[in-house]
Amino acid sequence: MRKRNSGKDKLITVALHVALAAGLFFAAFPIYWMLSSSFKSNTEIFALPPTILPKAFTLEAYAAILGDPVKVRFFFNSYFVAGAVTVLTVLIALLAAYGFSRFNFRGKGSLNTIIISTQTIPPITLLIPFFGLVVSYGIFDTYVALILTYLVFTLPYAILLMTGYLNTLPRDLDEAVAVDGGSSWTALWRVIVPISLPGIVATSVYTFLLCWNEFLFALTLTKSTSMRTVPIGIQLLMGQHAFEWNQMMAMSVLGSLPLLLIYLVAQRYFLAGMTAGSVK
């Protein structure tokens, strides 16, 4: 162990804590400012000098958002689309991962490479052909358009994540089912799925976040206000009024709640999902 007696050593410890505090300010101040502004009146936000704590604490911004059916609809749309995509992605990815993890077949290696490389395809490249497709199939401005397009972006990484998880499960388990004369399908549902819950949760978290954050496709493939999701709603709010900053911040806080909650409740799964294939 290192000796800790010199004054120099103490100085280093102090310097480290100063740096940690500076880092904390850098990381957290913008978020604190969003939160505190959401509880201020619109005039107080630009008060000089700025008020660190809301002087006149008010919930009027939240009341304005939650009392407006148009804005509540944005939230419903976001939850609905993200929820639907999550269910579909997990199901489809689970099947594919099972195929990858438990079978050897021709073309496995190249399929795997294709799936890895699709993760980095620029969304803007797919946007134009999707727009063409969506318009020609008459699903412009519908949930179907959003769900189908989101599925394409969530699936590749969900497959990799699930395959990685299934590979950690011992093969004797499903082989036992085969010895008893059961099919691989039975083994999947009876044996694999019940013990894959951590993998399924991590995949769901990742998928949900990706959908919740999506902006470009929601912007382009929907048009009517009733079809818009939260990110677009925030943008609309910005253009509409002469900058109701407190409402914009309240909506941002509400729009961040699912991510914050998931992070707090399921930090481990959240990090598992985010580190190897970041959401952004």
Binding site: P30, N213, P231, Q235
Partner: peptide, 12 residues
């Protein structure tokens, strides 16, 4: 900062 959507980061 990671927990916030790009749009929200932009607005902040």
């Amino acid at each position: 900062p990671w927990l916030f959507t790009a749009v929200i980061i932009a607005v902040i």
